[in-house]
Amino acid sequence: MEFTSILFYVFSLFFVGSSLVMITSRNTAKAALWLILTFFSAASLWLLLEAEFLAITLILIYVGAVMVLFMFVIKMLDTEASTLRAQFTRYLPLGIFVSLVVIVQMALVLNAGPFDLETVGLPEQHGPSYSNITAIAQQLYTVYVYPFELAAVLLLIAIIAAITLVHRTQVNSKKQNISEQINVQAKDRMRFASINKDSTKENK
């Protein structure tokens, strides 16, 4: 058995195991952490497939950004177990239906043939000096440049939509204008008054 196959089985074991623990874990924060381990194992598997750019992007985006936001939400939520499980039976049929649909779809696609080893063949093995980031960049910015740009615009629209949905200007909020605060000069805060000596004597 080659060393890479041992690595493959180790990472696959981590992958399957951690995803199983993730869906059975009762503590939301722990579940999120197991999901992070799942992402790491997936990234390691991709590294074995010589897809180093994809692997590192997976960690960068999903572990570094998406899951951090998840943790953020979990921290602020009330994670009382009873409230989380309150309407479990009500949503159970819907959940079963959705997961069944997903499983059937995946089975249909994966068994259809385009992913068979016979049709695709073994992926080409490259040496350690091979770099797939240039290959990806060349494809992405020449052949697929319009889909790429379209996806970017779509994401921008999503961002703007999310902001317009959530952001409402409050009428009574005491908002601070930070630019004004930073650009304040000494003369705005201090007032020099010239006091007449004689007038102060009279007051006494």
Partner: peptide, 9 residues
């Protein structure tokens, strides 16, 4: 970048 961002956890 990727590993550095993991430190947030």
């Amino acid at each position: 970048m990727a590993i550095g961002s993991v430190g947030v956890y």
